[in-house]
Simulated scan of single mutants.
Amino acid sequence: MLGLTLTGVRSLVAVGAHPDDIEIAAGGLLLSLAAASPGLRVHYVLCTGSPDRQAEARAAAARFLPGAEITFALHELPDGRLPAYWNDVKEILHGAVGVLQPDLVICPAPNDAHQDHRLLAEQTPTVFRDQLVLHYEIPKWDGDLSRRNTYIPLPDDVARRKVELLHESFPSQKARDWWDDEVFLGLARLRGMECRSRYAEAFDCSKATLTFVP
Rank of each mutant, 00 (worst) to 15 (best):
L2N: 03
V13T: 11
A17Q: 04
A17L: 05
D20Y: 04
D21S: 12
D21W: 08
A26E: 06
G27F: 00
G28L: 06
L29A: 07
L30I: 01
L30D: 01
A34P: 00
P38M: 06
H43P: 11
Y44I: 09
T48F: 01
E56N: 11
A57F: 04
A57G: 10
A61D: 01
R63V: 02
L65Y: 01
P66S: 11
G67I: 08
G67S: 07
T71N: 07
A73S: 14
L74H: 07
E76S: 15
L77A: 09
P78T: 05
G80Q: 02
R81N: 01
L82Q: 03
L82R: 02
A84E: 15
Y85H: 15
N87R: 12
D88S: 15
D88T: 11
K90G: 07
I92L: 13
A96F: 10
A96H: 11
G98D: 07
G98F: 09
Q101A: 04
P108A: 03
A109W: 09
A109D: 14
A109G: 13
L119V: 04
A121M: 02
E122P: 04
Q123D: 11
Q123M: 15
T126L: 15
F128Y: 12
F128M: 06
D130H: 10
Q131P: 11
L132R: 07
I138N: 02
R147G: 09
R148V: 08
R148C: 14
N149P: 01
T150P: 03
T150Y: 14
T150W: 15
P153N: 11
P155F: 02
V158N: 05
A159F: 02
K162Y: 00
V163G: 05
E168A: 14
F170A: 06
A175E: 15
R176C: 05
R176F: 06
R176D: 12
D177W: 08
D177S: 14
W178H: 15
W179H: 14
W179R: 10
D180R: 11
D180H: 15
L185R: 01
R189T: 09
G192L: 03
M193D: 01
E194D: 05
S197A: 15
F203P: 05
F203G: 03
D204M: 15
C205Y: 10
S206W: 05
K207S: 13
T211S: 11
P214H: 00
